[in-house]
Computed example of a mutant assay.
Amino acid sequence: MPLLPRRTLLSRCLALAGVSLLTAGAPTAQAAGPELRVITHASFDLPKPLLAQFEQEAGVKLVLIKAGDAGEMVNKLILTRAKPLADVVYGLDNTVIARAARQQVIEPYAGPAAQREAAATLGFGAVPVDYGHVTLNIDKAWFAQHKLALPKTLQDLTLPAYKGLLVVQHPATSSPGLAFLSATIAHLGEAAAFDWWKAMRANGVKVAKGWTEAYYTDFSKNGGKRPIVVSYASSPAAEVFYSKTPLGEAPTASLDIPGAVFRQVEGVALVRGGGQREAAGRFIEFLRSAPVQSALQTTMWMLPVEPKVARAEPIAKFSVDPTQFSNPTPEQLATQSAGWVKQWTRVVLK
């Protein structure tokens, strides 16, 4: 997600496994009741009043288990499937959903939210909640100062004029990094994509561990030396939203380059073997409710899948949707992405 400012023996075991156990907020008398355990990626963020309202209406105590990025979260579900650590999972996206289904750690949900029309779909029994686009972002001031035209194709980025300008995330440790790698493969084909990455290595591409390091350390907008970064189409709107001084326009822009855009869809599913099925279903419906679909736009900077929910003002005003995207199928991602990452490592880093 872009630009997020995102007790017992069990807690100690989860900490050793790299999982943080967090509650939704201070418990209230109304929220006292059985626990509903929700495992999420680290960027899960919704207003506390909304979470407290859900607790009150569902009669449960909400326990949020933040488990790293989507890939790490699936790994934890697999490792704990004999004794599930959660009842419901949010944050499964189209880079990992097929693997979660193949490993049988999720179950289909067939309630009303699963039957309604959605602006983006996910499949495998998960209910889509939000979507967004991983794409290249640029520092507008840097390009204006250097009087350099914006790249229009992937091949442009291999030219001498763009040497040393791009920072990407490692696809083994970053979901945006894997999404961007996947987009290049879907657009160019596997052989041509790795030829492109070889040319990018020669042209000085930098690899950061994750989105935070790339955006806040290497991106020239934030004091780094790279004016092109893999981020999200909603990042320019987030720049305006979080600015300490009012801005009339975003200082960054997203690029609509063929082969450099990946549509990421996130969803929610029941954890196989989990409990609290009625409350888990209510949580799934809650994530598709209009208040949540509105709120997530300026907390997690993703787009609502409910077609009738309006875009938040910052996103509507300062972000531009890409005209196209390049996605492998979920099955390809499930069966081939590990090999892609290994080959990418050999081509780009070794």
Rank of each mutant, 00 (worst) to 15 (best):
S43D: 14
G132P: 07
L79N: 08
A179I: 07
R272C: 11
S319H: 03
L36E: 06
R263C: 11
E266C: 11
Y109P: 10
L287N: 03
F124D: 09
L10Y: 06
L157W: 06
P47V: 06
N222G: 09
F143T: 07
Q332Y: 02
S234P: 13
A126E: 05
A238M: 05
P304A: 04
A199M: 10
D69A: 10
D87W: 02
L157M: 15
Q343P: 08
R102G: 12
V271T: 03
A269N: 10
I138A: 01
Q293F: 03
G275T: 13
R272A: 14
L62F: 05
E57Q: 14
K83I: 14
R201L: 12
T298D: 12
Y109Q: 10
A52T: 13
G25K: 04
Q145Y: 12
F54H: 03
A126D: 10
L270R: 04
L165D: 05
L148E: 03
S235F: 03
D256N: 14
T8M: 09
K209E: 14
K209T: 15
H41F: 14
K152R: 13
A118F: 00
A42M: 12
K350A: 15
P314N: 03
I185Q: 02
T23Q: 10
F262P: 01
T298K: 05
H187K: 11
A120H: 08
T329M: 02
E278Q: 14
S326W: 09
H41V: 15
A98C: 12
A269E: 04
S43Y: 11
N203Y: 00
W196Y: 14
H133V: 15
G132W: 07
K209D: 14
E213F: 06
Q324L: 13
A214G: 06
F219A: 04
A24M: 03
W344A: 13
H170K: 11
A312K: 01
N75A: 08
G59N: 03
I228S: 00
S337C: 09
C13Y: 02
V261T: 13
F286D: 02
A31G: 15
D195Y: 01
M302I: 15
S294A: 11
